[in-house]
Structures are given as C-alpha cells and as structure tokens.
C-alpha cells in the first residue's frame, strides 16, 4: 500500500469501489455540506469534493473536505490547476493531509469562461499531468516541486480524470498513459452514456496493460429528464450521449423520466461490471445526491466493505 487511503485499501482488496461527489455550497453554509455528505454515509467509499466546479465560486474544496472528514467520512480533495499556482497547491495539499484527507483528484478544471467570473485570469501554472507528478514526488521523494525536502510529506492517494469521449479519440488512451507515467493511482472517468465507445477505449487501455497500473472508476451520472439528456448531449463539451438514450428518455411520460434515467444508469453499471479493468464506479448525481443511496443499493453494490477488512491484500497497483 502506498497510502492510508480507504479508497486505496478497498481497491487493493479487489472490491468494486464506489465514490460519489458533493458540490460545496455557494456561501458559508457548512450545514449544507453536512447534509449532502450525510446522505452518502455507508453508501460510498469516498466523497469527491469539487473545486469551484464549472468555474463558479463555491466554498473551497479543502474547507468542505475538512467538514466531511470531521464527520468520519472519506473526502476526496479535488484540485484544479485553473485557480492555484504550484505554491498554493502544495500548501493546500499539506494542509489537507494534516486534516486527515489522504485522497485527491488532480484536474485542469473548466475554463473561467464557463463560470460566473469569466473575467478572471486562469492560473494554469502547471497542468493536471504535472500536478499528478508533483503530488507523487511529494509522497515518494518527500520533496516539493521546487526540489526542497518536505518535513512531513503528505501521503496522498492520487487520482485524475479521463474522458474517453473527447477528441481526438486515438489520443485518449495515450493521454491516460501520460497520467500513468506521471504516477496516477486511480482514474475517475467522464460520465459514460456511450458504453460501446467506452468499451472500445477500455480495450485500448487493456491492450497497453494500463488497467493493471491504475484503478479505473467508471463515471456514472443519472439523467433526471429528457431535458437534461439533451443539455448534456448538446451543451456540455466532451460529453457523448447517444441519440437512442435521448429518445428513450423522451419516450416515457415526464413524471416517469427520472425513474427511466435511474434504470439506464443501473443498466450501464451492470454492463460495466463485466468490463475487465473497471474497478469501481464514480456516481456524479448532479444536485440529486439523495438518489445515490438508492442507486448504489439497486446496483447491488451494498453493503460497502469495511475498510479494515483486508488491510494487507496486494497492492493491486504494480
């Protein structure tokens, strides 16, 4: 084991891991964080806490992570390269680890253009691949990015994102390989609606043996309505929603569309369970967190393993 991360232990023990996410509130409302996180207790192995997602100002991921950690849950600190330079990143990583936050996700982040501060400068001092490498060196070498020794290096279990659906498709496995080379431990993918294309990507991943070097959690987002399906299809960059799905959502009456969305998501999970190299699921129920327990249960992923169950089973990450 590289870290004390619960997520790592569960993945290493060979269980299908389940993570979900909690978007911090747009104001000083710690109780909102607690409410959202409480719904996920006993249901997931890690709670991603987004970092100013869609470039909108929210409570900092670090602060919300601390709140969640204090509740005895396992937060996953998301960090985007858009808002911080390497000094700020490293100090926050040390700070997070000092609060018992041992798992993080390195991202480049949505461009400021999409958020509520389009006039802001994007920092982009380093990119997500370089961030992975920096965090790995903080852990493995005990050194800051600038080369100095760290007195008490943070032992982060390092995640990153992968989007199998963006262009150019032929680069998508190679980009994952770059992250693996940089030292990433686990991957959470973009929401999967086009399962055929995802399987094609996984084939490429397996052909290069990358699935044995990194844990891949398949990203799942239930659709609430046909409107959401259309929005995801047409407005969200890098999202691949097949026409059949939009048609299927539109084919049921409005009041039954939410249930249809959940059915689709359960079918997707079921199919992905059979895909070699998929080691778990990342459920992004956008403003629909209360549905996560139901989805996890209906997907047959409950109960969650107790983390200490198999503490010394393999590293799984050779």
């Amino acid at each position: 084991m590289k870290t004390e991360s619960t997520l790592e232990k569960i993945l290493a023990s060979g269980h299908l891991a389940v993570t979900s996410e909690c978007g911090p509130p747009r104001g000083a409302q710690p109780q909102k964080v607690r409410e959202k996180a409480e719904m996920l207790r006993g249901v997931v192995d890690g709670v991603n806490v987004t970092d100013n997602q869609t470039a909108m100002v929210r409570m900092s991921s670090l602060a919300a992570c601390i709140i969640i950690r204090q509740m005895g849950l396992n937060p996953i600190l998301q960090m985007v390269s858009r808002d911080r330079n390497r000094l700020a990143m490293q100090s926050d990583i040390i700070g997070a680890y000092s609060h018992g936050i041992d798992t993080m996700l390195c991202l480049s982040g949505d461009h400021p253009k999409f958020g509520d501060h389009p006039m802001a400068a994007g920092v982009h001092d380093i990119d997500s691949v370089q961030m992975v490498e920096m965090v790995k060196n903080m852990r493995q070498e005990g050194r800051f990015q600038g080369g100095e020794k760290i007195d008490g290096p943070p032992q982060m279990f390092i995640g990153a994102a992968a989007n199998p659906f963006a262009d150019p498709f032929e680069l998508r496995v190679a980009r994952l390989a770059k992250k693996v080379k940089a030292g990433v431990d686990f991957i959470q993918t973009q929401c999967i609606y086009n399962v055929d294309k995802f399987e094609k990507w996984m084939q490429g991943v397996r052909d290069r043996g990358l699935h044995e070097q990194v844990y891949i959690l398949a990203g799942i987002t239930p659709m609430k309505s046909v409107g959401m399906a259309r929005y995801m299809k047409n407005k969200v960059p890098g999202m691949d929603v097949p026409d059949e799905l939009v048609k299927r959502m539109g084919g049921v009456p409005k009041e039954k569309q939410a249930e249809e969305g959940i059915k689709i998501c359960l079918e997707t999970i079921e199919r992905l369970k059979g895909v070699e190299g998929v080691r778990g699921f990342h459920l992004m129920a956008i403003e629909w967190e209360h549905k996560v327990p139901e989805i996890v249960e209906r997907a047959g992923l409950l109960p969650r393993p107790v983390e200490q169950a198999n503490p010394q089973v393999g590293t799984g990450n050779a």
Partner: peptide, 21 residues
C-alpha cells in the same frame, strides 16, 4: 491552448475545436 496545457488535450476538445470557442 486555452488552458495552456503542456500535456493536453483536455476533455473539452471536440472535432478539433476548443471548448472555449
């Protein structure tokens, strides 16, 4: 690159165009 990525492309690349515009 709109995000100045030295190890791109990000997940927003669509048909050769940038998600920003």
């Amino acid at each position: 690159c709109s995000k100045q990525l030295l190890n791109g492309p990000c997940g927003g690349s669509t048909l050769g165009k940038c998600e920003v515009n």
